Computed example of a mutant assay.
Amino acid sequence: MTRHWSAPLLVNVLLGVPGVVPIWLLWYFASNWPLAELGLTAREPTENDGMLGWLLIIIPVVGLYGLLWWLANRPLRRRTTLAPRLYWPLSVLATLLPTLVLIITL
């Protein structure tokens, strides 16, 4: 039985490496449509085909990644002694860690 927080941390950091793609897709979509409509970001000037094409890509990619993330974390959550109020934020932050490292270093 996994009792320490290092196993969920390691699993979620490893899941965060391919997770860079769905996170980037979500940011690209948000920055070109809802955030741009609110005036918070500038729309990509060459993106004039609309957002439907992006939605056809984003929904399956993010959906499959979310399913994979959930299937990996649900059994792991039961095997650890971390409380759910600590486990889930740790898992989300560990998953976002590779993306944050890329943002900081690039």
Rank of each mutant, 00 (worst) to 15 (best):
T2N: 09
T2K: 13
R3L: 06
S6G: 02
P8M: 09
L9G: 00
L10K: 10
V11E: 01
V13C: 08
L14V: 14
L15Y: 03
G16K: 04
P18F: 11
P18S: 09
G19C: 09
V20Q: 00
V21G: 05
V21C: 09
W27K: 10
Y28S: 13
F29A: 02
F29K: 00
A30R: 05
E37Q: 14
G39R: 01
A42L: 11
A42S: 15
R43C: 00
P45R: 08
D49W: 11
G53N: 12
W54M: 10
L55S: 06
L55R: 08
I57V: 15
I57A: 07
P60R: 06
V61N: 02
V62I: 13
G63D: 07
L64D: 02
G66M: 14
L68K: 09
L68I: 14
W69C: 06
W69K: 03
L71G: 01
A72E: 04
A72M: 14
N73D: 13
P75T: 07
P75L: 13
R78G: 03
R79Q: 15
T81W: 07
T81Y: 07
A83C: 00
A83V: 06
P89Y: 12
L90M: 15
S91I: 07
S91R: 07
T95G: 06
L97A: 14
L100K: 03
I103N: 00
T105P: 00
